[in-house]
C-alpha cells in the first residue's frame, strides 16, 4: 500500500464512517428513549435510497403503499385501544399522523413522480415518505411493549427487521439501484482528488449531527427526549408523555436513516437487504460508545468506516468478518467495565 492508496482509503473510510456515525447517533437516541436496540434502522436506509431511485425513474415508489398500509394498521390499533378504554381524545392526532399524512404524501408522490421534479424535490419527497414510518412502526411494534425487557424489545426489533426486509423486497424488487451523483464537482486537496459527493456526505453528516445537538440542548422537545432517556418514570411524572417521546425518537431515527440512504445511494449500489448491514455497522459504533455516549459513538462509527475501508483493501473477502468481529472485543470490554457482582439477569 502506498501513500496515495492510503489517502484514498482514508477518504473512503471517512465518508462511510460519517454515515455510520449518523446512524449510530439515531440508534443511540432510540435506545436511550425507548430501550429498543432498533436493528431495523437499516430498512429506513434502504427505503430512503430506493424511494429516491424509483422517483428518478419517474415512478411512484412502493414506499407509498407501505406507508398507507402500515399507517392504516396503526390507526386501527389506536381505534381498538380507544374503543376498549372509551377514551377518544387521542384519536384525532392518530388519524392525522397515520391516515391524513400518508394520504397527503402519497398523493404528492403520485402527482410529482411522473413530472420528474428537480433532484432536491425528489430527495425531500423520498425522505418525507420514510419519516412517518418511524412513529408508525413504533406504534405497531413497540408501544404495546413499553415495559418489556431490553432483550424482548431487541427480539421485537429483529422481527420488525425481518418483516420490513420482506416488505422491501416486495415493494422494490430484488435488483440493486444506484442513483446518479448529486454533483459532478471535484476538488483537489493536496495530492488527493475529493469528489463533491464525498464532501456532501461528510458535510451533511456534520450539519445533521450539529442540528441534533442543538435540538437536544436548545428545544423543549429535545429536552423532553433527554429527560425520558435519563428516567422514564420521572419524565412521565413531570408530564412528558413517553409515547410521544418514543414517536419523536423513531421519527428522528427514520429521518436519519432515510437521509443516510439518500446520501449513500450514489456511492454504493443498494439492494433491498443492503441497509441492514449498513445499520449494523452503525451499531458497532454505538456499542463502542457503550450505548450511552454520543461523541464516542460517532467516533466509534468513524473508526468502523476506516477499518472497513482498509480491511476491504487488504482482505476484501473478509472485510465484513473483520468489522463484525470487532464488536466482540468491544462488547467484552464494555461488559467487563459495567459488570457488577449481584446484578440480576432479566427474567
Amino acid at each position: 500500500m502506498n501513500f496515495d492508496i492510503a489517502l484514498l482509503l482514508i477518504q473512503d473510510g471517512i465518508v462511510n464512517g460519517a454515515l455510520y456515525a449518523l446512524l449510530a447517533l439515531a440508534l443511540l437516541l432510540v435506545f436511550a428513549v425507548s430501550r429498543v436496540m432498533f436493528v431495523a434502522q437499516g430498512e429506513f436506509v434502504t427505503f430512503g435510497a430506493l424511494s429516491l431511485a424509483v422517483l428518478q425513474q419517474g415512478s411512484m415508489p412502493g414506499t407509498v403503499w407501505l406507508l398507507l398500509i402500515l399507517g392504516g394498521l396503526a390507526f386501527l390499533a389506536d381505534l381498538a385501544v380507544a374503543w376498549k378504554t372509551k377514551r377518544w381524545e387521542g384519536l384525532r392526532g392518530s388519524a392525522l399522523l397515520n391516515l391524513a399524512l400518508p394520504i397527503l404524501l402519497g398523493g404528492l408522490a403520485y402527482w410529482l413522480a411522473p413530472l420528474k421534479p428537480p433532484l432536491a424535490v425528489q430527495v425531500i419527497l423520498a425522505v418525507a415518505l420514510v419519516v412517518p414510518l418511524g412513529p408508525i412502526v413504533y406504534r405497531l411494534a413497540f408501544q404495546p411493549l413499553a415495559n418489556a425487557s431490553v432483550l424482548v424489545l431487541l427480539f421485537v426489533a429483529v422481527a420488525v427487521h425481518y418483516a420490513l426486509l420482506g416488505l422491501g423486497l416486495l415493494f422494490f424488487g430484488a435488483e440493486g439501484w444506484r442513483t446518479p451523483a448529486f454533483t459532478s464537482f471535484r476538488v483537489s486537496v493536496g495530492p488527493m482528488l475529493v469528489s463533491g459527493q464525498s464532501l456532501l456526505v461528510i458535510g451533511s453528516s456534520a450539519v445533521l449531527i450539529l442540528l441534533l445537538t442543538l435540538f437536544f440542548n436548545r428545544t423543549l422537545w429535545g429536552k423532553a427526549l433527554r429527560a425520558t432517556a435519563v428516567n422514564r418514570v420521572g419524565a412521565r411524572l413531570v408530564g412528558i408523555r413517553t409515547e410521544a417521546a418514543g414517536r419523536l425518537a423513531f421519527a428522528l431515527t427514520a429521518l436519519f436513516g432515510a437521509l443516510s440512504g439518500v446520501l449513500i445511494s450514489p456511492i454504493t449500489t443498494i439492494y433491498y437487504d443492503t441497509g441492514f448491514l449498513i445499520a449494523l455497522k452503525g451499531f458497532v459504533g454505538t456499542a463502542i460508545g457503550a450505548m450511552v455516549s454520543y461523541p464516542i459513538a460517532a467516533l466509534g462509527a468513524l473508526f468502523v468506516g476506516l477499518l472497513e475501508s482498509f480491511a476491504s483493501f487488504e482482505a476484501s473477502a473478509l472485510k465484513e468478518v473483520i468489522v463484525f468481529s470487532l464488536l466482540i472485543p468491544v462488547l467484552l470490554w464494555r461488559s467487563l467495565k459495567t459488570h457488577h457482582v449481584g446484578e440480576e439477569e432479566e427474567e
Partner: peptide, 10 residues
C-alpha cells in the same frame, strides 16, 4: 461474559 442484551448483540 456479556450479560443480557450485550450477549445477544455479541
Amino acid at each position: 461474559r456479556l450479560s443480557g442484551h450485550y450477549l445477544a448483540l455479541g
